[in-house]
Amino acid sequence: MATGYTDPERRDRIIDAALDLVAEQGVAGISHRKVAARAGVPLGSMTYHFDGMAELLREAFTRFVDDRATAFEEHLAPATTPAEAAEAVTDAIHHIAVGDQRALVLTLELYTLAAREPAFRELTHGWMARSRRCLARHFDADTVRQLDALIEGLSIHRALDTAPHSRDLTARAVARVTAGTP
């Protein structure tokens, strides 16, 4: 098997394997041994690339946050008016945030870690900051904070409710939050 030096993709495979295992088994269910086996790397690669599980999880969730924030930014990028941005937000709640069980589980696992660990809270704050910068192209600061919270809340409720609310209800909620925007 190739060494870490001659296998430049090994670190990425480890991070991907860690995210897959967290999605399947939760943070509490992963170990260095399981991640190494899933990534197809020697167990020693874990300590070669990461100081410990906390560093691996930070790197893995950093990648996850970046992917999710980029998807949101790309989804809202075509909007040129507040009305178009509100429509894109409604779509995001129904399409980006829902239907991807893996992303839902990873998001909730990250939120749980962030509630306990400052390093992970920094990740969630960075994620919120990126979302808010994107929304700030169209809305004032107070509306941005409210809309960001609405997106998170409605997305989680849609994903976990046995009878998810309709797109029309989402559109009305977004319209209420953005009502004062010119």
Rank of each mutant, 00 (worst) to 15 (best):
1 M>I: 11
2 A>W: 11
3 T>L: 06
5 Y>H: 13
8 P>W: 03
8 P>A: 14
8 P>T: 14
9 E>W: 11
10 R>Y: 06
13 R>K: 07
14 I>C: 08
16 D>V: 03
16 D>F: 10
18 A>M: 06
19 L>G: 02
20 D>V: 12
20 D>Y: 08
24 E>H: 05
24 E>F: 08
24 E>C: 03
26 G>Q: 01
26 G>R: 01
26 G>I: 06
27 V>G: 00
29 G>Y: 09
33 R>C: 00
34 K>F: 02
37 A>H: 13
40 G>D: 13
40 G>F: 08
41 V>C: 09
42 P>L: 06
42 P>I: 13
44 G>Y: 08
45 S>V: 05
45 S>W: 02
46 M>A: 01
47 T>V: 11
49 H>S: 15
51 D>F: 03
52 G>L: 12
54 A>W: 01
58 R>H: 15
60 A>G: 07
62 T>A: 14
62 T>K: 04
66 D>I: 06
68 R>I: 14
68 R>T: 04
72 F>E: 04
74 E>Y: 09
76 L>T: 09
78 P>E: 02
81 T>L: 09
82 P>Y: 04
82 P>A: 14
86 A>E: 00
89 V>G: 01
91 D>R: 05
94 H>Y: 04
95 H>K: 12
103 A>T: 11
105 V>Q: 12
105 V>L: 02
107 T>S: 14
107 T>H: 06
107 T>F: 02
108 L>V: 15
109 E>H: 07
112 T>W: 03
112 T>N: 06
112 T>A: 07
115 A>Q: 03
116 R>N: 07
117 E>Y: 05
117 E>Q: 12
123 L>W: 10
124 T>V: 15
128 M>Q: 13
129 A>M: 10
134 C>Q: 11
139 F>K: 08
140 D>I: 06
141 A>V: 13
141 A>P: 01
145 R>G: 11
149 A>G: 10
154 L>F: 06
154 L>D: 09
156 I>G: 04
156 I>N: 03
157 H>G: 03
158 R>Q: 14
162 T>E: 10
169 L>S: 12
172 R>W: 09
175 A>D: 15
175 A>T: 10
177 V>D: 04
177 V>G: 05
178 T>V: 08
180 G>S: 13
